[in-house]
Each structure stands twice: as C-alpha cells, then as structure tokens.
C-alpha cells in the first residue's frame, strides 16, 4: 500500500495497515459493545447492586426483593434479551478487544494507560466471575425462582467458603471499576464530554462511582457474612409443585440442579 518508493515496497515488511475507509462493520460492533456496557448491562448492574444491598436490611427484606424481581412480568424475556444476550455480547466482544490490544503500560506507565490496562483485565475478570456467579446463583443449587425465601441462605451458604468469598470480593471490585470507568470511557469516546477539564471531572466522577459501587458491594458481602447463619429448609430441594404461580414461566430445573 505504501505509495512512496514503489521499487522498495515489495522488499519491505508490511507493518500496520492503513485505514480501510468505508470498509467493514467494526464501527457498528464496537459502538454497540460500548453501548451495551451502559445499557442494558450497566443499568442491570446498578439494579443488581441495589437489590443485593437489601441484605443490609436483613433476611426478610432481601428475600422480599428477590420475590419482587422474580415475580416481575415478562421476567424470562427480560432476562434473555435484556441481560443474557447483551451481556454475552459485551463479554465475548470484549475478550476480542482485549486480545487485540497491545498492553504497553511497562513502557508508558501513565495514568490513562494504567486505566486502559485495568479496564481490559477487569473485563476479563468480570467475565470469568459473572460466568461462575450466574451458574451458581441462577442455574445450580436451590432454584430461587421456585424458592425466593431461600435467597439469603443461598448467598450466605456460598460465601461461607473462603475461596468463593475471595472470588466475590474480587468480582465485586472488578465489576464496579469496569462499569464506573467504562462510563467515563463511554462519555469520552462518544463525544459527550470532550474538553480537557470536563474529561478530568468525568473521569473523577466515573472513578467515584466505581468506588461507591465497590463500597456498596463489599458492604453487601459483609452483611451476608456477618448475618446470623441461616438454616436450609429441606423444602427448597423439592421441585416446584408448591412454587408460586409465576415460576412456571421459567423452564423446568435441570437434572443437575436437582442433583444438588
């Protein structure tokens, strides 16, 4: 492609390709990735942190919140189209982005570059954590749609394992950072906040939000860990004959969840 020194161009290695003006769909996908991180994934994250913080108000409040959420109309549709698909897209495309970036924070240890690097690795961490989290909380073990009143117990039981507790703490911190700083990145890349000072403020706000979410998340974890240990109700292992009406909206529990 090099227009200069034609006679030598064939003997030179290629290097980074020039801009492919008007070619490809990467703009759409990349911007969609950015958008899904805010809406709906980011919004859901906020809701999720808030809902979980009900744990601070005690077992009853927490279980009631789960009941409210599991009882929402069109829950399954919202779950699939509002959470799972956008989340999966954001996560998988994010891995692709992470894979293509060439982290150089050792040579250029500047704040923005650190944040860039952390954004990528926190994304990977969150992806791993969320996969694990969804599996255990949504699909494995006691089914909370059938047994909302098992919610507090289930989380507490989970966090009673040292390793799981560690994973949750890391997951909460990574997710909080990824979202808070991601909000700033969204504002900067989409041209919402453009000026130097304004970006400084927006960055500070994004980081502040991250920290707020971290505190909220960790306080929630703390609430579970320090609450009086709940006892498991044997009923929770049974299947959904006695379950509330709306639980029929979801598919039958998998055999594996029964086994547990």
């Amino acid at each position: 492609m090099a227009s200069t020194a034609q006679s030598t161009s064939s003997t030179l290695p290629k290097g980074v390709a020039p801009l492919r003006a008007g070619v490809g769909n990467s703009f759409l996908w990349r911007r969609l990735h950015s958008l899904t991180g805010i809406v709906p994934v980011g919004l859901f994250l906020l809701e999720h942190f808030l809902s979980n913080a009900e744990a601070l108000n005690g077992v009853g409040a927490y279980n009631a919140q789960v009941k409210f959420l599991t009882g929402l109309p069109f829950r399954l549709g919202m779950e699939i189209f509002g959470i799972f698909i956008p989340l999966a897209f954001h996560a998988l495309y994010g891995v692709y982005i992470w894979w293509r970036g060439e982290n150089n924070v050792i040579d250029y240890p500047w704040a923005g570059n650190w944040f860039y690097t952390v954004q990528r690795y926190s994304g990977i961490l969150v992806f791993a954590y969320v996969t694990y989290h969804i599996w255990y909380m949504r699909f494995a073990g006691v089914h909370l749609v059938d047994h909302y009143d098992a919610s507090f117990w289930k989380v507490q039981h989970e966090l009673s394992h040292q390793l799981a507790l560690g994973i949750y703490v890391v997951g909460v911190i990574a997710a909080s950072w990824h979202f808070g700083y991601g909000l700033f990145l969204f504002a900067a890349k989409w041209g919402i906040v453009t000026g130097k000072k304004a970006q400084k403020r927006a960055q500070a706000a994004g980081i502040a939000l991250s920290i707020l979410l971290m505190l909220m998340g960790l306080a929630t974890v703390y609430a579970f860990v320090t609450a009086e240990p709940q006892k498991k109700n044997p009923v929770w292992d049974q299947h959904s004959e006695s379950a509330p009406e709306q639980s029929r909206l979801i598919p039958q529990s998998t055999p594996s969840s029964q086994a547990r």
Binding site: L19, A111, K189
Partner: peptide, 28 residues
C-alpha cells in the same frame, strides 16, 4: 473514519496526548 481501523478502535489509553512532542490536543 468509520471504516475498519477507524476511530472506534481507540481505547482511550490517552498515551497519544502524553507522547505528542507538540502537545496537540489529541484526545480532545
């Protein structure tokens, strides 16, 4: 700039503006 390799590939690491010898407002 919306083609492949375009502006969307920016990851906002902001190294550009730090490295620029002429202090050009690149991130802006």
């Amino acid at each position: 700039l919306m083609g492949d390799g375009g502006i969307q590939e920016c990851g906002y690491a902001q190294n550009c503006v730090e490295a620029c010898p002429k202090d050009i407002p690149l991130t802006r």
